[in-house]
């Protein structure tokens, strides 16, 4: 069972979020900086929303990467910290 856990720990949802938001941010920033027409900007009340939302998304995406770096997932949670594991056992029937 501990081996299952170890493999599972490789998957950190923060990096998936960072990937999605980061790619969105990149695409939006490029669109906003070079490809959003005047007509489109006029449509969105004079705000170049692609550019601003893109920059915002890049910042948020970077934030998740930093967080995942600073506080990485502790992989063998089950084997080291046995308090939750012990609670879990009677339950798994």
């Amino acid at each position: 069972m501990s081996e299952e856990r170890r493999r599972a720990g490789v998957f950190d949802v923060r990096l998936v979020i960072a990937l999605l938001i980061g790619v969105y941010g990149l695409v939006l920033t490029v669109l906003g900086a070079g490809f959003t027409t005047r007509a489109e900007i006029a449509k969105s009340a004079g705000v170049n929303i692609n550019l601003w939302a893109g920059i915002g998304a890049l910042v948020v995406g970077a934030g998740f990467v930093v967080w995942a770096r600073l506080r990485p997932l502790i992989v063998p949670v089950r084997t080291e910290d046995d308090a939750p594991g012990a609670e879990r056992e009677p339950d798994s029937r």
Binding site: V27, S44, N50, G54
Partner: peptide
């Protein structure tokens, strides 16, 4: 439909 340009619309 009224406010968002392509790109933001996809999001």
């Amino acid at each position: 439909r009224d406010l968002l340009p392509n790109g933001m619309l996809g999001v």
